[in-house]
């Protein structure tokens, strides 16, 4: 676990399921494949002789750089997933994200407008879900991906119940 210098002191974070890494990896794989294919187009055109004018070195360097960036991103994914965490306090929910660009968010239960539980196709295969807590402020949307379904349901019920009892209107 990397050090977490901006987290408030004395918070015990609940981490998300490690298998969420797989979800992120699949997403990464599709994205990387598509961009690489697109960026390889000049190279293919050059080799097939359709676009001779395009410099060969550039046609190789562009996808090469992209590949490098993609590999770095892939290596970071497990650590990024490990950096996601949430903590339920008495009056509010804390969520943290990020490694390079860290972000810690606190959302009061009473400000909650509604809760989403979303399950994507790969989430479903792995038995995961994503809980999203919306408030009236667009930037205070707590986003907890990669929760086991049971934990997601529990969290939703718990948040809804606390939201009800601490209702604060707008």
């Amino acid at each position: 676990m990397p050090q977490e210098p901006i987290d408030p002191a004395g918070i015990h974070w609940t981490r998300v399921s490690p298998s969420y890494t797989k979800v992120r990896l699949v997403g990464w794989g599709i994205g990387a494949l598509l961009t690489l294919l697109a960026l390889c187009a000049p190279l293919v055109l050059h080799l097939t002789g359709v676009w001779e004018g395009f410099p060969l070195w550039l046609a190789i360097v562009i996808p090469g750089l992209m590949l490098l960036i993609d590999i770095i991103r892939m290596v970071l994914i497990p650590r990024q997933v490990a950096a996601i965490g949430y903590a339920e306090r008495e009056d509010d929910l804390l969520v943290r994200h990020g490694l390079m660009f860290q972000k810690v968010l606190v959302v009061p239960y009473g400000r909650m407008q509604f809760i989403d539980v979303a399950v994507g196709p790969i989430d479903r295969m792995l038995g995961l879900c994503k809980v999203k807590l919306h408030t009236a402020a667009a930037d205070a949307t707590a986003d907890i991906p990669g929760l086991p379904l049971s934990e997601g349901t529990r969290l939703r019920e718990a948040l809804a119940a606390r939201g009800e009892s601490r209702l604060a209107g707008l």
Partner: peptide, 27 residues
């Protein structure tokens, strides 16, 4: 009226040991 709070820190800010605190409000 505070809707939420957010701490943010990027790589540069980390080198200087600072962070940004934004207060969430309705749009």
């Amino acid at each position: 009226r505070t809707q939420g709070l957010m701490l943010r820190q990027g790589p540069l800010a980390r080198r200087f040991g600072v962070l940004d605190l934004s207060l969430a409000t309705i749009s």
